[in-house]
Design a protein around this nucleic acid. Structure first.
Lengths: 159, 159
DNA sequence: AAGCCAGTTCACTTTTTGGTGAACTAAAAA
DNA sequence: TTTTTAGTTCACCAAAAAGTGAACTGGCTT
């Protein structure tokens, strides 16, 4: 029998799950993220996940495979054991946050298409869309700088 | 009869719709966004939306109300006419982009909760989460600066 | 070679979502 | 006052998403 989760842990898993659900992630995946964050050893086997979250094998299998493709989750095995210990690839949080930032910028291409298609009946509107595109382009150039400067700040604090 | 959309316009509406759908927006709302972006006069009445997008009154009513609450859409009336001309509040794109950036930062609070709950069995994991929080805090402070510097750049180009 | 372990696959069920149509409402027009 | 216009509400329906359970697979163990 797998160890019990505290009430606190359960609540937090749920909150994390709901947060990710609202961001378009499938419910179970959000809870697996929460579970692996909240567990002291930051990993769990297939059967432990089933046990903790009270879901079926197939649901867990599907969710984990998807999350592995998306590089959110990986697994290791312990010598002599066959079962997989799944864990979050949280050490690559930079890559993930960068992806989120780039995603904001992504819509720029659609706005460019919009500009190409629009007539000039409403110049103020065209101007707004144009400015937005300029900003997104600017933001795009600043993303790497944000990470660089953050690292600098970490090394020499109060800089 | 409402004027016909060109193939190009239809395609672009669909692309914009799909993009927003994948970001958790309801399908019809995404297409309304696309429609109002693509139309030369950047506005449409209730019945025109029904006509262009081939959907029911109730669907449009629900979608528009929601989008008005979210401040994505507003309407005006023309003197002497009763019907509403709905348009995108695109001139407030700064507010919207800022909201998206803040949304990335939002998860910081959950990670803080995670840190509070986690034991110290896996210090590397705790360290990663901690660094992530620091970065999100840093990003949070940089968001207003991004907009400020963009505006400066607009005023004196190549600066 | 027989059985087991750790997961996978797939047909099916349940739940959620998105949308429809008809009846309704409030304000303006006739 | 009745009708029309412009939109709203709500009970219902269809489709899509999410999850279940049972049968299956492929590598290890005995």
């Amino acid at each position: 029998m797998t160890q019990q989760l505290t009430e606190q842990q359960k609540e937090l898993i749920e909150k994390i799950g709901v947060f990710h659900e609202q961001n378009g992630m499938q419910p179970l995946m959000g809870r697996i993220l929460g579970l692996l964050l909240v567990l002291d050893d930051a990993e769990a086997t297939f059967d432990e996940i089933i046990d903790y979250l009270k879901v079926s094998k197939s649901a867990v299998s599907t969710a984990l495979n998807f999350m592995q493709i998306k590089k959110q989750v990986a697994y290791r095995t312990k010598p002599g054991e066959r079962k997989r210990y799944f864990y979050l690839t949280i050490k690559h949080w930079e890559r993930d946050v960068e992806k989120e930032l780039l995603h904001i910028v992504e819509i720029k291409n659609l706005f460019k298409d919009v500009i190409a298609v629009r007539g000039d009946k409403k110049p103020e509107v065209n101007q707004s869309i144009h400015e937005l595109c300029l900003f997104l382009e600017y933001l795009n150039t600043r993303i790497p700088v944000l990470f660089e400067n953050f690292k600098k700040m970490l090394n020499k604090p109060q800089g």
